[in-house]
Design a protein around this nucleic acid. Structure first.
Lengths: 124, 124
DNA sequence: GTTACATCTCCATTGTTCTGGAAATGACGT
DNA sequence: ACGTCATTTCCAGAACAATGGAGATGTAAC
């Protein structure tokens, strides 16, 4: 039984939309890699070379989507990744996979994919 | 050892961008739920109530992102989901999580999330 | 070859998102 | 209270994405 909450379609769209932008994807990855301690807005700006106004805009989008959280530490605002929504997104996408409400991981897990055409590694 | 291929950032951006649109998300989910047998373009159009020109545009975007594949069956074009890219996206996002190259699932798996602020269920 | 059918391409219109400078806000130390 | 520093809000221009009707293309049956 997963601890991850089930998200509504609009939440999933928000999360995917937030991540489908180069700068935001980089921000999120940086925060994922920074772990629970997170990073200050200024540190992110510096690490990625993004002007503060632009960064602030993107941080707001990510926060809105629930993908990152903010906490204050003295003068700085520290941002860190919240993995819950990510998990929820994956759950939503794979939900009820192949039509069998119980076989979700049975047929869609990595490696167990049955390609109709035969060729499988056509990713990129 | 995962069978999933490692994607480049641009592939991930493509996949996320493709899915961050209401109609396309619905198409993809419908195909995920339809399993490897897939569905004809016309059947998708009917199921979702989307005009054929619009649908064709969205199917092209999803195909381009590698999220779905096309095969012909007599007069119809059958589309089906390809789960590989999905898995690759998740892998990319969680890659090198918390800075420890080995602890990926140790610290970021659902349930094991250590929230700095304390409150966790702030998803929506 | 002709007809019927499924799907795609073209294109103009409309709406949304990104960007970054300048100024406003808020928090802190003294 | 004041100066300082970190971050956000405001704004307008530029770039990009979605929509759907009409017509083109490809496939198959007769």
């Amino acid at each position: 039984m997963p601890t991850t909450a089930k998200l509504a379609q609009k939440d999933v769209l928000g999360a995917l939309g937030a991540l489908s932008q180069e700068t935001r994807l980089e921000i999120f990855r940086l925060l994922v890699q920074s772990g629970p301690r997170g990073r200050a807005a200024g540190a992110i700006a510096q690490a990625l070379g993004v002007p503060s106004a632009t960064l602030s805009f993107h941080l707001a989008v990510l926060t809105n989507a629930g993908l990152i959280v903010q906490r204050r530490e003295s003068r700085s605002l520290i941002y860190s990744a919240d993995y819950e929504v990510m998990d929820g997104v994956v759950g939503f996408l794979m939900e009820n996979c192949c039509g069998s409400p119980g076989a979700d991981e049975a047929c869609c897990a990595p490696g167990s994919v049955a390609e109709p055409g035969g060729k499988a590694s056509s990713a990129a």
